[in-house]
Structure formats: structure tokens, C-alpha cells
């Protein structure tokens, strides 16, 4: 399946990736080739086949609703790009 240039840009926006004008054609070609590869799946009859999410068909374990972790905020925030008073700083979102 061939993607159009505006589709490539729309996907990039969903991914929060910036694609330069010079790169669009290359991404268009490579992504279309990958989609061509996976399009073989459409021809496979999968009626009555249950989707497989875990190789051993395991389900998520539940645990007791108890606090088991200790607060390590300062330790984890040491590697953050910008923090203040225990908060992560980002450009202003709400005016």
C-alpha cells in the first residue's frame, strides 16, 4: 500500500516527530515498502482464530492493593532535564 505525502506528515504529527521536507519522500518510499510487506496478511483466512497477545496465553496477575514502593522522587528527578519543588518543568501549557 502506497502512502501519500500528506499521510506521512499526518502520521509524523501523531508520533510527535518532525519530518523535514527533504525527508518526506524517503519516508514515503520506505513506509510504503514496509506496508507492502505486511499486506500479505490480508490474504490469510483468520476467521475463528483468536488473537494471540501472550505466547503462553497468560493473563495479567493481580496483586493486593497495598503500598509497596517507597517514595524516591528526589532520586528519580536527579536525571530530569528540569525540575522545581518536586515538579517536572515544561513550557507553559495553560495560559
Amino acid at each position: 500500500m502506497a502512502l501519500e505525502q500528506d499521510q506521512v506528515l499526518a502520521i509524523a504529527e501523531l508520533c510527535r516527530l518532525q519530518i523535514s521536507d527533504a525527508e518526506v519522500a524517503e519516508y514515503q518510499k520506505n513506509l510504503s515498502n514496509i506496508l507492502d510487506l505486511v499486506d500479505q496478511l490480508a490474504a490469510v483466512d483468520t476467521s475463528d482464530v483468536a488473537p494471540m497477545a501472550h505466547p503462553l496465553d497468560a493473563v495479567q496477575r493481580l496483586r493486593a492493593d497495598q503500598v509497596t514502593e517507597t517514595n524516591q522522587r528526589e532520586h528519580f528527578q536527579k536525571i530530569a532535564p528540569a525540575t522545581e519543588n518536586g515538579h517536572y518543568l515544561v513550557p507553559r501549557v495553560i495560559e
Binding site: L3, I11, L14, L31, L35, V38, L41, A42, V44, T46, V49, A50, P51, M52, A53
Partner: peptide, 20 residues
């Protein structure tokens, strides 16, 4: 793209079926 609205069944769900 495979997970985006309208394509999930055709790609991810289908792939999980063929995976089985």
C-alpha cells in the same frame, strides 16, 4: 499508523491472529 483509528483491526488484530 497500524494502531491508528480505522486501521487497528486490519493490522494489529489481524497480525495477532496470524501470530496464533
Amino acid at each position: 499508523y497500524a494502531l491508528s483509528a480505522g486501521f487497528y483491526d486490519a493490522y494489529y488484530l489481524k497480525a495477532q491472529q496470524v501470530r496464533r
